[in-house]
Design a protein around this nucleic acid. Structure first.
Length: 140
DNA sequence: GCCAACGTTGGC
DNA sequence: GCCAACGTTGGC
């Protein structure tokens, strides 16, 4: 089991939209490092959903339902998408401010590489964020 | 292959 | 809306 965090501006595609849709394919990644992370995702991996720019907070947990396949919105075979579905909304959104204030999260890629849109999380980071979100989740 | 110029992202 | 950080592009 691996843990990930994806960023999206809610004006482009929000957590609420994901819940409403019941799942989506995660397209639009045009950065090689983010692409590599997408390709490393396995079915069943858990993905935290972060709203950038507006809100700047983690909204909930999504689950990978289909591993990387070619991006249907691009002619360039370099790019891939994965399928995600909402798993559980956070009882309490975790803000960027709170993440920055937590010493356990000082090395999180969200802060260190603020422009990366798909990033791996360490297990301890994932668990810390769940706790901050007041959201117990067993992974199923 | 280096690096300057340029475009984009995202926090403030 | 500004601007710092960083990825990409293209000339040499």
């Amino acid at each position: 089991m691996n843990y990930w965090l994806v960023k999206q501006e809610p004006s482009a595609y929000s957590w609420e939209q994901l819940v409403k849709d019941g799942g989506t394919f995660w397209d639009g990644v045009r950065n090689y490092q983010a692409r590599n992370n997408l390709q490393a995702m396995k079915k069943g991996d858990l993905v935290l959903f972060y709203h950038s720019v507006v809100g700047k907070e983690i909204k909930g947990i999504a689950k990978v339902t289909k591993e990387a396949y070619p991006d249907p919105t691009s002619d360039d075979s370099n790019w891939v998408v994965v399928d995600l579905k909402p798993a559980k909304a956070f009882n309490k959104s975790v803000t960027l401010e709170e993440i920055k204030a937590n010493s356990k999260l000082k090395d999180i890629a969200l802060i260190k590489q603020s422009r990366l849109s798909v990033m791996p999380l360490k297990e301890v980071e994932f668990k810390t964020l769940l706790k901050m979100g007041d959201t117990p989740y067993s992974g199923r």
